[in-house]
Amino acid sequence: MKKILHKANTRGSANHGWLSSYHTFSFGNYYESSRMNFGVLRVLNDDEVAPGMGFGTHPHQNMEIISIPLEGELEHKDSMGNKALIKAGDIQVMSAGIGVEHSERNKNRDKKVKFLQIWVLPNKVNVTPRYDQITLDKASFKNQFFQIVSPDPGDSGVWIHQDAWFHLGEFDPGLTIRKNLQDKTNGLYIFLLEGSCRVAGETLNNRDGLGVWETQSVEFEIQEECKILLMEVPMSN
């Protein structure tokens, strides 16, 4: 097994007043040549948007964009005609394909919205743009990893144009959980949202990230109640 550790306090950051963001990989004004991506996982941003503020209309092209709200409500509008509200417990996906424009805004004027913005390089370019969102049943990921993203439109979660699988789990302390990879040639990027666990010889705490590859499975020792996001992705496109 090979691995790369990204502690939370080593991430890039940006504070625009209305937006506070932490970047696991190079993004915007944050550039670090050793942290451009993990395989086809290109962007992992941990965003916090001030009340009533948001991202104005802007374009994307040939990227699979997944948003995972953690707190609050985020309004979405796009050039495909979609208008939607996403909140904690939802998963949103947008395949930008040949090109799409969208905006995102904190719906509430009295509290912040927090969400993860994730970009994955697609295995098909110039596709017709598409949008989807689902609401998860919280019981589905209690003490197990529940699939929230896959390459199969008929599978659980949302789907993307890439041989990638995302799972989400919330675990009680004292458990040991083993997760097998769908494809042994893929890598697995582990992002600890809350709590503490030990994996691949490393102790992970809030917002720590760990990428592992050249392995078929990973074991998690849950030290404190925790919430974990797994992103299994090809290591090359």
Rank of each mutant, 00 (worst) to 15 (best):
V199Y: 06
Q216E: 12
C226M: 07
N126Y: 05
S150T: 05
Y189V: 02
P69K: 14
I148S: 06
D183M: 07
S103Q: 11
D155K: 13
G52M: 08
Q61N: 15
E71I: 12
W213M: 04
C226F: 04
N106C: 07
I91V: 15
T176K: 00
E101S: 12
D172I: 10
F55G: 11
Q162C: 01
S79Q: 14
G97Y: 05
F38K: 06
C226Y: 12
L70G: 10
V100A: 07
K184R: 07
K114C: 11
D78V: 00
D137R: 02
V40K: 01
A96F: 07
S34A: 15
Y22N: 14
D132Q: 12
V113P: 11
G169D: 06
E221T: 01
E71S: 06
L41H: 02
H102G: 04
D110T: 11
I65D: 13
I160H: 08
N206G: 08
I98Q: 11
T215H: 04
Q162Y: 00
I228R: 03
F146C: 10
K107E: 14
Q216V: 04
S26T: 03
H16Q: 11
G56H: 11
G211Q: 00
K138H: 00
Q133N: 12
W165C: 14
W119L: 01
L74E: 12
Q133V: 03
G157W: 00
K3N: 12
W119G: 01
L168A: 02
F141V: 02
H161Q: 07
W159P: 02
L74F: 06
Y31F: 15
H102Q: 04
G12A: 02
V127L: 13
G99N: 09
F115S: 02
Q216P: 01
I118Y: 00
D208K: 03
G81I: 05
D90P: 10
V158P: 03
Q216C: 05
I68T: 10
M53V: 07
L74N: 15
W213Q: 05
P129D: 04
M235K: 08
H6Q: 14
T215C: 10
L210R: 08
V49E: 14
F191N: 12
V49Q: 11
L193Y: 14
E224L: 01
P173F: 02
P69D: 09
V113E: 11
N237S: 14
L204W: 01
T10K: 10
S103K: 02
P234R: 06
I4P: 04
F171Y: 00
H102Y: 00
K138R: 08
Y189R: 01
F166A: 02
Q223E: 13
V127D: 07
G28F: 15
G89A: 14
D163E: 14
K2S: 09
L85M: 03
E170A: 11
A164K: 02
H6T: 06
I190D: 09
L210W: 04
K114P: 09
I190P: 11
T128Q: 14
N9P: 08
Q144E: 03
N9T: 09
H58F: 04
S33L: 13
L168S: 09
H16W: 09
I98P: 08
S217Y: 08
